[in-house]
Amino acid sequence: MGLLSDIYNTVAKFFRPQEEQGDASKSVATNRLKLVLMQDRTNLTPKILEQMRGELIDLLSRYVELDKELLELNFEQEGDQVALMLSIPVIRAKDEDEIEAALKAEAEKLEAKLENLSAEDSVNSEESQECENSDENTEVSETSESENNGMSAPEGMNTNKSQEEIGSECHSEV
């Protein structure tokens, strides 16, 4: 029986129109190749792409609720130009309060980070250096303040506060 069905399949395949036949191993190859060439041409490793994807999700989810699993970040070629295409499935837009809360949370995260940094500095380095370092940190928070100013008032105040704190820490230690 096995032999008969083999023969039948071979004969049936022979008379089938060709377009129906190929299980399109060619299109698999084309797609794999396109992707790998994009990466070759841009020197972006899959690791960096993944990081980029993660950061974009963080940024966008402050403003919209999105389907993280379905978010696609791909290279596409249009003529000679390579474009980075981002497809974001939006579940719903966040309202103003939510956005504000998200920004606030973000600012708090940043603040915590800064504090960590200055704490590490005070442990690791000598006193004179330490003061310089915290000065640098103050600058960082200043810029983040001016960036965030337009978005929400409470956050700007938060940053100010952290700036004062860092400044006072520095002075007291000196």
């Binding site: 399109a24 060619k26 190859a29």
Partner: peptide, 18 residues
């Protein structure tokens, strides 16, 4: 092989390499 969709066609290759 190109006809049976098991090999990239000339157009495919030219498009990919432009």
């Amino acid at each position: 092989l190109i006809k049976s969709n098991d090999m990239m066609s000339v157009d495919d290759v030219v498009e990919i390499l432009s």
